[in-house]
Nucleic acid binder design. Structure first.
Lengths: 336, 336
DNA sequence: TTGTAGGCGTTATCAT
DNA sequence: ATGATAACGCCTACAA
């Protein structure tokens, strides 16, 4: 038994030509019902399966999209990928996953490899260490649609699906104010990423709008991990006046902050209220569940996929669409 | 500016033939150094990039592997995928991700779509609802190497990378015994998956080896989620004698169990010790961190990738390799 | 060392 | 309605 059956094999058996077989298989109207049936039956019998590679070469469409994320095993990104996959799979697209590992060079190599693989579209959440953006232009020059999700780069002709981080920062901060916080500190992330800048901007505006000031030292910049959260709290707890609330731009930093507060004998939320960011699975499971901002990552992925599908449908007019997803504040005990 | 440069374009510019260009680009020895240099320079100038699709069609190798998991956004699976990707990417392979969503039909469709895409290998963690395994034979008949990770199906000619679940169950239970537990209950998972059967077998053997008996009702079968853990504890706490320890085959069920115990006024670990399974990120972050079994998912993914690479290297002799990864007990407060 | 020609599996454009 | 042929981009005998 041959393991690769082609339309030629079918044609030979039926004493017809490959072109006819192709037509029968593709429901081309210009073919008689009888031969169509014969072809279909024979294809079935011989277990014929179409070689998409040949189709792709012929048509110039690979039905494959590339997705580049910093790391695939971060809940936020894997949820986005799930959304992309579930939206695109029914349309016949495959998803190739690459990791930039927050490295500009790896991101660049990923792009080139994906271009060589003839992807029909590229979805990216930009590495935070990427300073040079030539590789993005490069992709666009090849007429491959690019869609940014979450982390974007400002460029023409590129669609984006992002969270309204400003609003998220504003709402989180406002929530703390409404619940009685008077002195709200902020743990920010890497300013190379505009998401952190916007979260902070929202935070600051909420303070202004409610006539609360932001003393020197109340904004602490750091990594988005537990250690950074601990370190930040150590700094904050030397200030005068002491903060009575913390809005952290990351759940992990929020967790570190809570651990450090506990270690220093402060209670959450009684002494210090805390709000995190991302709705990481663990936030829900703590004894004091952490209030956090849900980014609807799966929906973000689905939106990115939908924007891509529109893009390839309207190939005539290269549209640029910017979808902004509303943050959802998950109110839990840590801020009440 | 043309967006698709082929070796013909380069050849035309240089007044040579495409074959020569191809040779120059592929470091074929049968070519003069001078033309090689000219070709390389021109390829660079014209921003030539190889079309891997054409190469794949010609060579019959797509340099792509398919990975099918139940859900990509589960930490265990996304970590495995990370391992696979990081091992395979440097070797020039791409990874196409598909989700079976624990559905046999979706799994089958995934397989067919991947075969059509001409993958060079298939890595699968079988859906738990898959009863019919014809689609696996189908892949093998096409001479596409199949590698199972974590969840496997018994069949000839297929390599596997799995955890030693028996040992994991044994070690977890023994750990509880050594720490003073006398009456150890077990929360098992879906017995359609042999991993749960083996974890239970390890549990039972550990009890036997230490002369501890397992009263009626001490093994509770359920889903691997929080709700199932709660339900199980409600049942267990009606038994006489009451268990003083629980080994759960899932972290989520362990969490549910702990929540329910707390609700019923029992303390963990003072009244009931608990061990979970999977080393989910949240287990480490609880106020009472949960002892659990680490499955080294990233290493599992890397091993699967390595086995695949060996497989394609030794295409002459179809080898069947079974790698078993040792579980790592992460001892934390919940069991001490 | 280089050119010629054929083929990988499809589909599309001509004819017939 | 069907057949013949070319083309997608690349590689590789074989010939020169």
């Amino acid at each position: 038994m041959k393991d690769k059956i082609t339309i030629y094999d079918i044609a030979k058996k039926l004493n017809i030509t490959a072109a006819t077989v192709s037509r029968a298989l593709n429901n081309n109207p210009k073919i008689s019902e009888s031969t169509r049936k014969k072809v279909l039956a024979m294809a079935d019998e011989m277990h014929y399966e179409q070689n998409k590679l040949a189709l792709a070469l012929k048509s110039g469409k690979s039905n494959t999209v590339g997705v580049v994320v910093p790391f695939i095993d971060r809940n936020f990104f894997s949820s986005i990928i799930r959304g992309i996959e579930e939206e695109l799979y029914p349309k016949g697209y495959h998803v190739i996953i690459c990791q930039s590992q927050e490295d500009e060079q790896k991101e660049l190599k990923n792009f080139n490899a994906l271009l060589n693989a003839q992807i029909d579209g590229l979805m990216v959440s930009v590495s935070k260490n990427t300073k040079n953006f030539d590789h993005f232009d490069h992709v666009l020059k090849k007429k491959v649609p690019v869609i940014f999700f979450d982390r974007k780069v400002d460029m023409k002709g590129v669609s984006t699906v992002t969270l309204d981080d400003y609003k998220a920062g504003y709402e989180a901060t406002k929530h703390l104010i409404v619940n009685g916080a008077k002195r709200i500190a902020h743990l920010s992330g890497d300013w190379a990423l505009d998401i952190y800048q916007r979260r902070m901007a929202g935070y600051k505006q909420a303070l202004v709008d409610h006539n609360i000031d932001c003393p020197e030292g109340y904004v602490v910049k750091g990594q988005s991990d537990i250690g950074a959260g601990k370190k930040a709290v150590k700094k904050l707890m030397k200030l005068d006046p002491l903060p009575d609330a913390i809005f952290s731009a990351s759940d992990f930093a929020a967790l570190g902050a809570i651990q450090q507060l506990k270690e220093m004998g402060m209670r959450v939320p009684e002494d210090v209220k805390v709000v995190g960011f991302s709705n990481e699975p663990f936030t829900k499971f703590m004894e004091v569940p952490i209030t956090t901002v849900d980014q609807s990552p799966m929906e973000m992925g689905m939106m990115a996929a939908k924007v891509f599908l529109e893009q390839v449908k309207n190939t005539s007019v290269p549209i640029e669409k910017n979808v902004v997803i509303a943050p959802k504040l998950k109110i839990r005990k840590s801020s009440l």
